[in-house]
Design a protein around this nucleic acid. Sequence first.
DNA 1: CGCGACGTTGATTTGCCTCAACGATTGTGG
DNA 2: CCACAATCGTTGAGGCAAATCAACGTCGCG
Lengths: 196, 196
Amino acid sequence: MNQDFSALVKYISRHIQLTPEEEIYFCSLLKLTHVKKKQFIVQPGFVANYRSYVLKGAMRAYLVDSKGQEHTIAFAIEDWWISDYSSYINQAPATLIVEAIEDTILIQLDYNSEQLLMEVVPKFERFFRIITQRSFSFLQQRMLSNLSKSAEERYEEFVHKHPLIVQRVPQYALASYLGFSTQFLSKIRNGKTKKS
Amino acid sequence: MNQDFSALVKYISRHIQLTPEEEIYFCSLLKLTHVKKKQFIVQPGFVANYRSYVLKGAMRAYLVDSKGQEHTIAFAIEDWWISDYSSYINQAPATLIVEAIEDTILIQLDYNSEQLLMEVVPKFERFFRIITQRSFSFLQQRMLSNLSKSAEERYEEFVHKHPLIVQRVPQYALASYLGFSTQFLSKIRNGKTKKS
DNA sequence: CGCGACGTTGATTTGCCTCAACGATTGTGG
DNA sequence: CCACAATCGTTGAGGCAAATCAACGTCGCG
């Protein structure tokens, strides 16, 4: 049972050191969940109750706007976390859909358990601070990239930085992450963007 | 002396409760700084040593790209924090400029003091976790807005959410924050965006 | 094996940019 | 305190990157 969580425990240990007891307590709060491809774990109108760590598989968080267009805010493959954080943090109704891109195994921590965990093992305040800072820094880089680069440049940058994700997500999802249409992505890939 | 920091102490107390001793210790790490309009507090190539709280005035963080274009990533007025966080958090060279939009009074906390503060008063782990989560959530909303809305919609949204900032920042800075040209912002404002 | 989801391609359109020229306002040195 | 320069904002003309529309190929799955 504990076995199942070893990847996550190892991930945690890169940021904070836990005693064996703390480790056991931490694992007691976790929940292993299997989701099938296309299945949702968060949907608009419902509070996101979990922060989910991807043990195996791939997930995607996106917004569906008033015109029915999808806009991807995050991908997550092995060793990444995902949720609708605005919903999770504030325990308010979600606006995003969080969906499995592949059959996926998640390790989930629910909101109340997380609060309890931080009280019982204050070191986790540090852990969540650090991973949130990293996410923030990452998102800021992406924001700047979107503000300052062309569609083609953003695509090249993404391929360079995240080759593994490119291989695993559908093109329409990648296009909606990078901020352009799926047709345009197709043209970029096939050098049909007119200047030979 | 302590007086000067009361606004910040009050701000902190909204998130964590400090004992009088902790409060005194915290204040001992702070530094009051005056910056003139157009002056930089962070610049590319240098490590951002401080996290800065705006006591009075207005600041702006932006990237200058290879074509010389500016792209604003953040504004800060009274009661907001600002820095190049990617630089500050990783203590790596900054890519952004952080500049005063008005003559400004800052309360600054340097990186080493922040680390020390979290060791001595672990409650601050919690504080920084919470404000980083808020920043993250805020930035995510902005990213989604940029992905899903037109220039005009983003402008209207910003005016609605941040009327005080609109009044205090130059138009070119606002345009570069919203992701379009200053000429286009002018046209939006004056209803010259072609459909009567 | 047939249908629906996904990807491709070309034609056309459009939202926003760039360039350019010109007012208005600010700030600065004489 | 004025004059002049620099910065900032406005407006119009023309252009381009990327969207939209539409049609078709392909693949995976029920």
